[in-house]
């Protein structure tokens, strides 16, 4: 192919390339969570299921008051890894033990919902998909594997809620190389039921992810509220500045 033709072909293919770079299991859209009750439920799931191994070391327990909880409620129901509500959400798991048991120290979750955003979706989409795509895999040391993070070190923390699932894979020809085959996801198979139905589990996971998103930037709501007033003021000020400018410039001939 000569150069101009190559160039045209290249430009025409640009959009495809942009999508091709985001290959892998597609992310599900995380349902929005704004009501305080959902976020409180998310907080409950978080301290019960995540905080055993993960810390949220930038997050103070009593910041949960922003979610409509009182110091008493936090102290009696959620304070698992600290003595006082003014302390940070640390974890009981020692880094050395984590290294021995899982091979890695579980990442801090304070800003995980911001860290996991990418071209493929928001951080919440990622977490919502990740937490719902664990499956039983006896070849893994923990017995669990994950669709979007293959060979993940983390076991399925909420398996009792979701139950045990395996994954069906089909072999397909590699579209890029006909001599090879690739394993393609063809659905989950429920092996043992959990305490929740599939819908209930999705709802609970969405609450948890909503909480993680809130925790990544607790000030986000206030920021947007304040932003509206700031913009209204600046718009008003701009009009004044515009007229002030015009009143001076009308004498310039």
């Amino acid at each position: 192919m000569n150069f101009p033709k190559k160039l045209i072909a290249m430009l025409a293919l640009l959009p495809c390339l942009a999508f091709a770079s985001e290959a892998g299991h597609p992310l599900d859209k995380a349902p929005a969570r704004e009501s305080l009750s959902s976020l409180q439920n998310g907080a409950k799931l978080f301290v019960n299921y995540c905080l055993n191994c993960h810390a949220a070391s930038s997050m103070r327990y009593n910041r949960l008051k922003d979610l409509g909880l009182t110091d008493e409620q936090i102290k009696n129901n959620l304070l698992f890894t600290a003595d006082k509500v003014g302390e940070m959400m640390t974890t009981a798991l020692r880094p050395a033990d984590a290294k021995a048991w899982f091979g890695v120290v579980p990442p801090d979750l304070s800003v995980i919902a911001r860290a996991k955003a990418s071209g493929a979706g928001t951080g919440s989409d990622y977490l919502y998909t990740y937490l719902r795509t664990f499956y039983k895999d006896d070849t893994r040391p923990t017995g669990w594997n994950n669709l979007i993070v293959p060979n993940v070190a983390m076991p399925h923390a909420m398996w009792q809620l979701q139950g045990v699932r395996t994954v069906k894979m089909v072999e397909e020809k590699d579209p890029h190389d006909p001599s090879k085959t690739v394993h393609k996801f063809a659905g989950f198979e429920q092996v043992a039921p959990g305490t929740m139905t599939a819908t209930e589990f999705d709802t609970a996971t969405a609450d948890l992810v909503g909480y993680l998103e809130w925790m990544a930037e607790p000030v986000a709501g206030k920021r947007k509220q304040l932003g509206v007033w700031v913009l209204l003021f600046l718009a008003f000020f701009s009009v004044l500045a515009w007229r002030l400018n015009a009143s001076f410039w009308k004498e310039v001939k």
Partner: peptide
């Protein structure tokens, strides 16, 4: 003349700047 001009320019800039600061500080990464 350019003092008033610049005050107007600054106010328009601040509208755009604040829109980012308050509504999209990450600006899509």
């Amino acid at each position: 003349y350019y003092s008033t001009h610049d005050i107007f320019g600054v106010s328009v800039f601040l509208v755009i700047f604040s829109a980012v600061v308050f509504f999209a500080p990450e600006m899509g990464g």
